[in-house]
Nucleic acid binder design. Sequence first.
DNA 1: CGCTGCATTGAAATATCTCAATCAATGTGG
DNA 2: CCACATTGATTGAGATATTTCAATGCAGCG
Lengths: 278, 278
Amino acid sequence: VWLKLLRKGRLRHLFTNGELRALDEAIDQTIPLAPRTIVIEPVIRPRFLHYIVQGSLARYIDDCFGDRRLVAVGMAGDFVDLEGFALERYDYCVGTLEHTILARIPHERLAQSISLFPQIKMALWCATSLDGAAHREWIFRLGRLRGEARIANLICEIVERAKLVDLYDGKTVPIPLLQSEFAQACGMSSVHANRCFRALRERGALCCTGSGQIDIIDEAALKRIGQFDDDFLYAEGVSTNEISNDRPVSSYRPFESTGELAGRITMRQSHRLRGVEI
Amino acid sequence: VWLKLLRKGRLRHLFTNGELRALDEAIDQTIPLAPRTIVIEPVIRPRFLHYIVQGSLARYIDDCFGDRRLVAVGMAGDFVDLEGFALERYDYCVGTLEHTILARIPHERLAQSISLFPQIKMALWCATSLDGAAHREWIFRLGRLRGEARIANLICEIVERAKLVDLYDGKTVPIPLLQSEFAQACGMSSVHANRCFRALRERGALCCTGSGQIDIIDEAALKRIGQFDDDFLYAEGVSTNEISNDRPVSSYRPFESTGELAGRITMRQSHRLRGVEI
DNA sequence: CGCTGCATTGAAATATCTCAATCAATGTGG
DNA sequence: CCACATTGATTGAGATATTTCAATGCAGCG
């Protein structure tokens, strides 16, 4: 079964065995791709949903000067182009980062599977929402952290996601991004990315082996430097953890009502989501 | 009818009249909110979907040091917390920016409406995908542009979205963000945001009136400075425009096959999405 | 009048970019 | 095998961008 990693990754709570089998049967073909091959471009009209069986890829946007920014990375167990099913167009490109195998599901067959197992639609919608949460993490990373921390934070994200699908060997960063691609993902020049890597190396957080792969020496240090919060949305199940503080409507504090909260709460004093220490 | 702006905004192609009416009837209550009021926090368990009838709000994430980053802004005609329905938790906070009226739809009633009009689910999924596209724009903005351009680009995005729902008067930036909030959205210090605004002022692109509102003097200049591409996903319908270049499977260029494209295409040479001039 | 919140400014300290050059590894053709 | 080209990592140095800290100005408000 091609989709078996759905049982492990971020989406593991979303699919029953029946739904998984239905999705699996909707697979049209599996596609082996060479490293650094373009998979999706905005000029392509979406007709298929793709799933990463093996390998990794990057979603990116180029501007008119040829400058590229990565907006997401995908690894085995992730869907590639969920947006294409609902939106019927792409606003980004996708390229493989290594030898990669995709499973392809034609949209029509996906629609059939959904009509048999309506919960599949909810699960894929949920997966889309998770993509959104990942995007918000990227926005936060770019807006909040300095160069070295951005690199460290991205590495932490990649490692934590890889752990979920058993693709982290305890040492090597499991996605073969070049330094220049880290730069494109973290919003800096490749020269500066190189200096950030040197700083992380000198701190003993990681080391760059010859063949372009990056080995993690001190994961805790990386998380500290990158202000990475283990506990964020990816790493947890999404359906079971009920959150306690279940407040009634009055917490909205409409006009002319103090509600249950004392006085006026400005946005500035709001809840702190990310419990990170440095 | 509370949801009438859905007929105009980014989601205008997604809802038939019947679906709109069904959604409208699912509204539980409308909630007037004071400026700078917290609407959503991660500790809240999602039970309702909210829609902005009037006003504006910001989605944001705070870190453990109290530093805040905005990750999205919403205005009349937008949904507030689509992710909550599928994910059943929030990873962000939401606060109003001005006097704002929300329409509230309990998730159970939304589910009933969906069972009567299954297309509503697809439309909301599509709206979620559009949120994702907006997030990618923010990632691109933060990663690619310098301070002044980031501010200009964000203002352009806000104005273009407001035009769609007739909330742009041709002059005033229709969302009352403080300079410090522009800074939080654009990943810079408020001091630097202030200097960027001064630069934009000195260029004659905008002017800051006394009461905190920002007036646009030269929209074309703003777009140029912000490298803003009118043509991006927001501003267009999503279902009608078929894209011509409809390539067959072989364009995937699997191993041992040249496909229809000559030679090996590296990611570096890929399609340019954003046709922006400076 | 004295608050307060926000905009503004200056100046020094950092962070980051750009340009240019070098180096190491790898592959290719003769 | 060598000469050569290519790719990615690395480094230096000067130019910019941005942050930080501290102070000031300005307007509304009780």
